[in-house]
Design a binder for these strands. Structure first.
Lengths: 108, 108
DNA sequence: TTTATATGTAACTTGTGGGTTACGCAAATT
DNA sequence: AATTTGCGTAACCCACAAGTTACATATAAA
C-alpha cells in the first residue's frame, strides 16, 4: 500500500534517515525507542519513518499502540541497480584497457 | 585537491546531477555541451559540476578555455561500501533462515 | 586588436525539507 | 473511569539548496 514511491536517492540523502536504517539493521524497534537515539523530537522521527516506509526501506507491524519498524529490502534494490550500471561502466573500461594492452603485446 | 569532501548521498540526491553522471557515462564532455541537455542555465550546470567534482564523481581536464568532464570512480566507492553493508545484512538474514530450515529438517 | 567563446562567481530570489510545538486519539495501565 | 503511553498530524518557522541574472576573465578566432 505504499502509494507515492518517493525518490530513494532523496530519501537516503538525509543523515538521520541513514542512521535510522543503521539502527534498524542492528535491531528492529518502535518509533519511540528509535527517537531516544536522536536529539530531535519524536514527531520528527515519526516523519522520517513515514518517508522511509513510502520509499520501501522499512515495513511496519502494528502491535497494539506500538509500531514496530523492520528493515525491508525493496528500497535498496533501486540503489543497487543504479550503482550496478556504473559498476558495469568501470568494468567495461577496464576490459577495454586490457584488450588494448593485449593488442600491443601481440603486435611486437 | 578536492578539499571539502561533500556528502556523496546529498550529491546524488539531485536528479540533474544524476543525469549529468549518466550523460558522462556515454561520453565525456564540456560544461556547455552538457548544459545543452538541460532546461536550466549554464551557470546552474557549472555549479553542479563543481559539486560533483568535490565529491569525487568527476575529474576535469582544462583544455584551453574548455573544461572536459570525465567520470571518476571515487565518489561511487563510498556508495558501494554503504550498500555492501546492507547487502551483507540481507545475505546474513538468508543464511540464518537457511540454517533454521536445516535444523528443522534434522530434527525430524 | 577587436570580437566571440567558454567559463567562474557574486548577489539575489524562492521553494521546500526538516525541524518545532500543540493537539487529538486509541490502546494500555491504574 | 481516570491516567498514562505511543503514536499521527496540522500549523508553523527557518535555513539552505538550486535556480536566476549580471558581470568578470582568459583563450581562441577574426
Amino acid at each position: 500500500m505504499e502509494q507515492h514511491r518517493l525518490d530513494v536517492f532523496q530519501v537516503i540523502a538525509d543523515p538521520s534517515r541513514r542512521q535510522i536504517l543503521h539502527l534498524l539493521s542492528k535491531d528492529s524497534s518502535t518509533i519511540n525507542s528509535l527517537a531516544e537515539n536522536f536529539d530531535m523530537s519524536r514527531p520528527a522521527v515519526s516523519k522520517h519513518i513515514k518517508v522511509l516506509y513510502h520509499a520501501g526501506f522499512i515495513e511496519i507491524q502494528d502491535i497494539g499502540r506500538e509500531r514496530h519498524c523492520i528493515l525491508k529490502q525493496d528500497g535498496f534494490k533501486e540503489l543497487n541497480e543504479w550503482l550496478a550500471y556504473y559498476d558495469k561502466f568501470w568494468g567495461d573500461k577496464l576490459d577495454k584497457l586490457g584488450a588494448l594492452m593485449n593488442d600491443n603485446l601481440n603486435k611486437k
